[in-house]
Structure formats: C-alpha cells, structure tokens
Amino acid sequence: MHDNIIRQVLEQLKNGDVGVEEAYERLKHLPFTDLEFAKVDNHRAIRKGFPEVIFCQGKTPEQIRNIAQTLLDNGGTLLATRADEAAYRAVQEIEPEAIYHSQARIIIVDRRPSKMAVGNVIVISAGTADVPVAEEAAITAEVLGAKVARVFDVGVAGLHRLLAFYEKIASAKVLVVVAGMDGVLPSVVGGLASCPVIAVPTSIGYGAHFGGLAPLLTMLNSCASGVSVVNIDNGFGAGYLAAIINRIGEIGEADEIGEMGETVELGDGAND
C-alpha cells in the first residue's frame, strides 16, 4: 500500500541510477517538508503504511494545493477529507486525475500499484440522512485496501430491514455502523455480530439530540460487547480503523488497494 521512498532511493543508488548527491538531495527532505503553515509528514507512509491525509476544513485552497503537491511529489495516494468544491479545484490544478466524492467530501488521487481489495468491511447506516458520513467511512476503507459493502437506511424504526441482511452482516470481518437520532443501531448490530463493530454517531437529529451528543453517549453506553466508538461525524476515523483491523491476517496486505465495493441501498426515508 505504501511507497517506501528510502528503499527506492537506496535501490536506485545501488543500481547507479542516481548519484550520491542526488540521493542525498532526495533524502534530506525526510522526515518532513516545512511549508511554514504546515509540516508535511513524508515518513507517514513508511510508519503507518499510508501517506498523511489532508483534513481540508479550515485550510485555504492554496494551502491545500501546496500540501497536496508535496505529498504527491513524495509518491503514493492522496486522500483529502472534508473537502469542498474549492479544495477540489485547487487539487485539480496540480493533478487533473483527482476524483471528488461530493457526498463524502473526499478527494482522491489514486496512485497505488494494485487495486485488489481484501477482507470484508460492511458499512451500515441507520438512515438516508446518515449516508454522507457512512460514505466517508466506506470510501476511506476502500482507499486503504478494504473490500467494502454498503447497507443503507436500515435503522431500528424498521428492524425487519436490518434483519433481512443478517447473513451479510454475520459474514463481515469488521462492521461500521453510522447512526444519528437515538444512536441505538450499533448496539443492535453488536448483539448480532461476532466481529468488531465501530460505531459512528452523526449530528443528524432534533433538538435534544444535541448535535450528535445524544447518540454518542448512547453508543458509549452500549450493552453489546465488541462495540467501539469514534467521534461525532468521524466517518474517516471509522473507515481508517476498520481498514486496519480488516488487514490483519491478510496476505500481502501492505501492497493491496481497495476497489469500489458493492452498494446496497434500502428505502428513501429520513434518518431512523
């Protein structure tokens, strides 16, 4: 999944493809590049298996473009979250092949060598209104090499919808469950599944929902075993964690890349 820049430079030096001075110039920028407004972590892929991810919210388009350029210059895939159209246009200026997933607010420049997906991550949303956060989780997991399926709009207000997918849920290696309102769905899924469940509260709900605090507390107090919780609307964090768990035990996990997974969408109602 990652480009080992140091190994690549050393191999080129060994083969005579680059000289000592050129190799030195390429390596001296490690472990980070100082852009003054940002210290871009060039070692992230070596340590973590995936390059640094850009969190676009609060950054100007110019800052995003410069950070993206630095990351792309160091090789590997670019992933930028919480991105708007302005951020996308800024990245497109330096990389026309950049892809923008507007619902998930994610920008991707996919430069990984293989598109073979591994494992089985299933992302579940309680309601249609939770889909943007669910998509952020799903696309993140896919970019990190996971095989991902989606089961959307199966909240507890119509429990039969969820149970119709029991066999699919039981086959998962990791489950990401996204819910707003009362946030009960992860507990229900946790009671059905034997794999880890990553719960994601969303900011979708009425007044006493307190912008996601109510479902967050519900999920933290889950009576089902094996349920962990990420922050409100943090689909990226859930997708990243799911991909890491999903890779455990997979052959060649460090060199594999996710492909777009199956999508299952149910209903067209509001969040349950």
Rank of each mutant, 00 (worst) to 15 (best):
M181T: 12
T128K: 03
A86S: 14
G127E: 00
N74E: 08
V148D: 00
L71D: 00
G258E: 02
D84G: 14
E265R: 14
R112M: 15
E85P: 01
E167R: 15
V133T: 15
G212F: 04
I107F: 04
M260F: 13
V156Q: 03
R26G: 02
I46W: 08
N74Y: 05
I6M: 06
E52Y: 05
S171M: 09
G249N: 08
L159F: 10
H160N: 13
H43K: 10
V229H: 06
V264R: 14
P132K: 12
A45N: 06
A134I: 04
L27S: 02
H209V: 03
I107T: 03
H101E: 13
Q63S: 03
A238T: 04
V230Y: 01
C195G: 07
A138N: 01
M260E: 11
M260S: 13
L266V: 15
V109G: 02
C56D: 02
G252I: 11
I106E: 00
G267L: 02
I5L: 11
D34Y: 10
C223V: 15
V200D: 01
G190C: 09
P113C: 00
V156P: 04
S114D: 15
V229Q: 06
A179V: 07
E62V: 14
T140V: 10
N221H: 15
K39H: 12
Y88Q: 06
N120Y: 01
I169K: 04
A45K: 11
P31H: 07
N221D: 11
I108C: 05
V148R: 00
A141W: 02
V227M: 05
E259Q: 15
S171Y: 08
A146E: 00
H43T: 13
G58P: 08
F37Y: 15
D255S: 13
V123T: 01
A193E: 01
S125A: 12
E253G: 10
V154L: 05
I232T: 10
G239M: 03
R44Q: 08
E36I: 11
E135K: 14
L213A: 09
E11F: 10
A157D: 05
R105S: 11
G249E: 09
D233L: 00
N231M: 09
A98C: 10
V121E: 02
A149M: 06
K168T: 10
R161F: 06
K173G: 12
E36Y: 14
V131E: 07
T128Q: 04
C195N: 12
S171W: 09
V121L: 01
V151S: 05
F32L: 13
L30Q: 14
A117T: 05
L10Y: 10
